[in-house]
Amino acid sequence: MLTGSFWDFLLWIFWFYILFACIWIFITIIFDLFRDHSLNGWGKALWVIFLIVVPFLAALIYLIARGKGMTERELERRGQAQSEANRYIRSVAGTSSPASEIESAKKLLDSGAITQAEYDSLKAKALAG
C-alpha cells in the first residue's frame, strides 16, 4: 500500500509540474504577444484565439516561428530596464566634486549648523580627495 501511494504521489508531482510549465509558457507567450510592437492587433487576436482553441499546438508553433524574436524583445526590454536603473542611480548619487563639497560646507557654516573648525575639517577632506 505504501509503495502505491508513493508512486501516486510522484505521478501527482509530475502532472503538477507539467501543468505549471504549461501555464508558464502560455503566460510568457501572451506577454510577448502584447509587447511586440511589430505585430498588429488582428495578428495578436488571432494568436490569442489560436492559443485558446488548440493551446499546445499554438504554443509549439509560436515558439518555433517567433522564438528568436521573443529573445530579442526580452533582451531589449532588459537592456532598457538596466539603462533606466543606471540613469536613476547616477541622478541620485550625483557627482560630488571638491568644489561642491566645499560649497555645501560653507552653506552649513553660514547657517550656523557647523563651527569654523568643522568647516576647515570638511574643506581639508574635500581637497584631499
Rank of each mutant, 00 (worst) to 15 (best):
R35A: 02
D36M: 01
H37E: 11
H37V: 06
S38P: 02
L39S: 12
L39H: 09
G41R: 01
G41L: 03
K44R: 10
L46P: 04
L46M: 12
W47K: 00
W47P: 01
I49S: 07
I49R: 06
F50W: 07
L51F: 04
L51V: 12
L51K: 00
I52S: 10
I52L: 12
V53R: 01
V53L: 10
V54D: 05
V54H: 04
P55A: 12
F56R: 02
L57P: 03
L57H: 04
A58D: 09
L60Y: 13
L60G: 07
L60V: 11
I61N: 01
I61S: 05
I61A: 09
Y62G: 05
Y62N: 02
Y62L: 03
Y62W: 08
L63V: 12
L63I: 12
I64D: 02
A65V: 01
A65M: 05
G67C: 03
K68P: 01
K68G: 06
G69F: 06
G69Q: 11
E72G: 02
E74H: 10
L75E: 14
E76W: 10
G79P: 06
Q80T: 13
Q80I: 13
A81I: 10
A81P: 00
Q82D: 15
Q82T: 13
S83H: 14
S83L: 14
A85G: 04
A85W: 14
N86A: 15
R87E: 14
R87V: 14
Y88T: 13
Y88K: 13
I89H: 11
I89W: 06
I89D: 11
R90H: 14
R90A: 15
R90E: 15
S91A: 15
S91V: 10
S91Q: 14
S91P: 00
S91H: 10
G94Y: 13
G94N: 09
T95C: 03
T95Q: 11
T95H: 11
S97Y: 09
S97Q: 04
S97C: 10
P98L: 08
A99F: 07
A99H: 09
A99C: 02
S100H: 11
E101F: 05
E101N: 00
E101V: 12
E101M: 10
I102H: 02
I102S: 04
I102C: 07
I102L: 01
S104Y: 05
S104M: 09
L109H: 01
D110R: 00
S111C: 00
G112V: 08
G112L: 03
G112M: 07
A113P: 04
A113V: 13
A113Y: 04
I114E: 00
T115E: 03
T115C: 03
T115Y: 01
Q116S: 05
Q116H: 11
Q116D: 12
Q116R: 08
A117T: 10
A117Y: 05
E118A: 09
Y119F: 15
D120H: 02
D120K: 01
